[in-house]
Design a protein around this nucleic acid. Sequence first.
RNA 1: GCGCCCGUGGCUCAACUGGAUAGAGUAUCGGACUUCGGAUCCGACGGUUAUAGGUUCGAAUCCUAUCGGGCGCACCA
Length: 531
Amino acid sequence: MKQRVKSFLQTQYDGDIILEKPKDRSFGHFATPIAFSLAKELRKSPVKIAEEFSVLFAQNNMFSEVSSVKGYINFKLSESFLDEYASWALNNQKEFAKANNQQKILIEFVSANPTGPLHIGHARGAVFGDTLARLGRHLGYDITSEYYINDAGNQIDLLGLSIQLEGQNSILKQTVQWPESFYRGEYISQLANQAVQEFSISILTDISRQRELALWAKDIVMKMIVQTLDDTHVAFDSFVYESALYDAWDDVLEKIHNGVYEKENKIFLASSLKGDDNDRVVVREDGRPTYLAGDIIYHNQKFERGFDHYINIWGADHHGYIARVKAAIEFLGYDSSKLEVLLSQMVSLLKDGEPYKMSKRAGNVILMSDILDEIGSDALRFIFASKKCDTALEFDIEALKKQDSSNPVYYIQYAHARIKTMIRKSGLSSGEILNATLHSLSHDANSLLFEALLLPEIVDDAFHSRQIQKLTDYLRSLAAKLHKFYYDCKILGTSDEAKLLKLLQVVALSLKTGMSLLGIEAKDSMIKDEY
RNA sequence: GCGCCCGUGGCUCAACUGGAUAGAGUAUCGGACUUCGGAUCCGACGGUUAUAGGUUCGAAUCCUAUCGGGCGCACCA
C-alpha cells in the first residue's frame, strides 16, 4: 500500500520521498516531512513548499485529500482505493503481505550445547530466530534455519563424568568426590538410570567407557532439545555437528594459511590484523584444535554453500567472539560483511522480587519445557517476540504464569474469535460479504480498515529492521481498535451489515496472518475456563 | 583498566531510526451489561527521557564527559 503511494509520488517528484505515519491519524493516512529537507536547497520556507507540493500531488483519485500543515504534507487515501485493496487481499489471502525478495539467507540460532535441556534463556533466541525466519520466508527470501551442535570438546567428557558420578552417588550409594565443575540436574540422574538399563551397572564406574556414555547421552539430550523446540513450533532445516567438521581441518588450514602462523608450537589466527584485540590460538601445543577452529571450519562451510547473507543469533556473552570469526572469514577470502551477528541480551528472572540466578552446572535452571507446560507455546512465543532483543529482559516468573487478560496473546486471539463468531451468526454468505463495497464508512471504520491493511508494511519493516516486536505491537493495537469498534458500533442486523463484515474480514485476515508469522494459533472461538 | 549493550511514569516496554503535544500494557482508583462473547470498553492518577554540555529548522534518538546497571576481556565451549 505504502509502496503504491510512494511510486505515484515519485512520478510527480523525482527524488526520495520518505513516507511516515502521522502522529495523529486525523491529519491523514500518510505524511511526509520532505518540505523540511528541501527548505535549505530551495531557499523557501517549509510551509510554502508544502503548500505547492500538496496541490501537485492532489491530482490523483488515490487520494481524497492532500493537505499541508506546518510544513508537513498529509495524504488521505480515498475509499475506492482502500476498497480495491481490501477486495484484492480477501480474494488472495495467501498472498497478503507477501513480497518477492529473492536472496538466500542462512539463519543460525539456538545452537545450545547438547549437555543439558534448554533453559529459559535459550527460549529468547529460539523464538527470535524462528520468527525472523517466518517473516523472511513470507517476504519471499529463501531462508535456511540451522542449528550448530557443539558435540565435541571438554564439555562432552564432562557430561560423561557427571553421569557416572551421579550414578555412583544416587544408585550405587557411594560417596563421591565432586569436581569443581560438573553438570547436574534431574536429567543427569535420569540419564544415569537409563544408562544402567541400556548398558550395565558397570557403565557407572568404568572410566574407559566414559566417552561412550557421553556420546550416547548427548544424543538423548539432543532429542530432548528438539522436542522442546518442536513443542514451541520452532523448526530447523538443518543441523550441523561440530564433531563432523574436523575432517576438513587440514584443507581449511591450507585455505587460511595467509592468516595463521606458528609460534611456541601452537597455531595462531592473526585476527589482530583484522580488528580483533589479540591473535587467537586455534591449535594447542598438544595438537588439539580449539573451539575457534571448529567455528572457522563451520563458517568456511557456510560460505562455501553460497548464501547471499548470513545471520547468526548469539547470546550477548559471545559478543567478544564476533571480531575473531569475522577475521577468519576475511582470511578465508570471503566478505565478512555478509555475516550479521545479532546478540540477544540476557534474560534475567525475578522470583518474588528477588533476582533468580541461574547456573547450568549447579542445576538451578528454569527449564524452557517447564515454562512451556505452564503457559503454553503461544504465550511463550508472544512474550519473547514482543521485546527488542538488544535490551536485557527481566520478568517475574509469577507474571508468566498468569493466564488472564493481562496476557496479550489472549487479547489478540479474542479479537479474532469475536469476528469469526459474528460471521457465523450473520445470515449473510461469504459471497455477499465479499461483494459489498466499502463506501461511506464512518471515521472509525475507515481508520480500522486502514490499520488492518497496514500489515504488509509492518511485516517488511519488522524483518528488515530485525525488530520483531513491531509485529506484536501492531497486532496488539489492531486488536484494541477492533475491540473498541465492536463496543461502539452495532453490526449484525443493521443495513450496513455486509460492508462492515467485509471490513472485519480484513481485520481478521491481518490478525491471522500476523499471528501465524509469530507461530501463534488464531482461534475461531475461545473456550472460557471453567471455575 | 579496556570493549560491547543499556538507562524513558511505581513495574514491563514503545516512539516509524533525527520529526508534529514522548505513547501502550500493568498496577492503583473510579465508571459502563434489557448488548453481535465483559477474556471487553471508558475515565483518572502517573514524565525535567540518569546528569551536564554540544551539533540544527527540530534531539529520548547523533557527539563529548560524568554517574548507574548488565555482559565480555581463555590455549572453556
